[in-house]
Design a protein around this nucleic acid. Sequence first.
DNA 1: TTCAAAATTGCACTAAGGTTAAATTTGATT
DNA 2: AATCAAATTTAACCTTAGTGCAATTTTGAA
Lengths: 235, 235
Amino acid sequence: MTSTAAKTVTRPVTRAVTRSVEDYLKAIFAFSEERLATEANTGDLAVALNVSPPAISKMLKQLQTQRLVTHTPYHGVRLTAQGRRIALRIVRRHRLLERYLVEALGYALDEVHDEAERLEHHVSDEFIRRIDAHLNHPHDCPHGSPIPTIDGHINHVHGQPLSDADADIPLHIKQLTTDDAEHLRFMQSHALLPGALLRVVNREPFGGDLTIILDDTTLNISRRIAGKILVAEHA
Amino acid sequence: MTSTAAKTVTRPVTRAVTRSVEDYLKAIFAFSEERLATEANTGDLAVALNVSPPAISKMLKQLQTQRLVTHTPYHGVRLTAQGRRIALRIVRRHRLLERYLVEALGYALDEVHDEAERLEHHVSDEFIRRIDAHLNHPHDCPHGSPIPTIDGHINHVHGQPLSDADADIPLHIKQLTTDDAEHLRFMQSHALLPGALLRVVNREPFGGDLTIILDDTTLNISRRIAGKILVAEHA
DNA sequence: TTCAAAATTGCACTAAGGTTAAATTTGATT
DNA sequence: AATCAAATTTAACCTTAGTGCAATTTTGAA
């Protein structure tokens, strides 16, 4: 590749969407949409992405010139329509991959996150198309999170944390809102999975354990774990 | 306890096996083992890896300090035991992935190379273990190349190019020695795949076409294509 | 013996994604 | 309203893996 024309080329506004860019956009999406907030801040992103705050500042500036975010210095970032589109594409890939790993290859729930986290950046659109078809176009990942459609639509789950649920009401699990492997192993080992039916029979006071009944089994779970399980009243 | 004493010397040798390193080792392996030669040379590697000759020289020096190759300047490179081990690991991943893409996801023969080329660097050992089990521990990739074992053994295919085969002898296809998508589409569309039975019924002189019979179908193929198909006498 | 081709080296450069240290801005608290 | 610590941004620099070009070295064939 000879690049003799390189000198007259104006600075490209449309730099590449690298793996890092995808990760940043996904993280901003997670803060600004999946968690209540409307904007993500530098400190949280630095923790989430495991880099220093200056790295965030620098990347935000770059993403701004790429028109993927709008960044108000010292205040916060939000995604542009284009940035959101890319973030949703990655989220879709991630969740389809997780589903595929569980259904087709028998992965346990706590193993899929890390694998999907790498693969989401490296598989082709064709690969995603094929696993989506193979899985019969699923709507959620194994943790119960919604899978965005190709054209960027996503239905947010509405449920309340099990830790807040009233006693003696039939509930079903909507979503497990954790990526922690230990939590997930615990949940899977007790069949605390999306779709499961249960009800709360006792709540110890002062943030103590909950007692629940699930499949005729009585089970004690900590408030901490219960806070990671979203439930809704069972119709 | 005498000779096992740990060397507490500062270690400059430990650098990471990056994606680039994996690609270089794989390319050196391909030249020095899969093609007749015992050593790979700079120029060929530069072409194979689509990189300038100085980039090769530079990387060879690095690989030498990592003890992954032995490089005799101006002559050639060969892999050390450790370098060969890494190269075989990547070849194994590549060929298992190709097989999986075809068997499990219905990829066509000409689509698998590029996909596997990326994925081989990014899937986990666990992923490879699972697809290997799922495929029931296959011995070859869809092109008929042998899949190295986990402990680094590989059985080389012995066959001759179909272009050199004598007429009227029952043959079967051992291997397709091309990654070119057009060639592969042609082969797949005519069922010229590993395992197929055929015999040569005519060879035009002066490097002209071959006429073969395969499944009661008569087929004309160019010497060029025939050179990419390894066959052996059918027992 | 010569000499051209191939390989290597040196140097300056690009590009992405980091780092630490210093400066700046914000906003909550006196 | 002024202050000051925490959060954030800027500045300067590092690393990996390339690039190109020029200069040098080595090899091997005529």
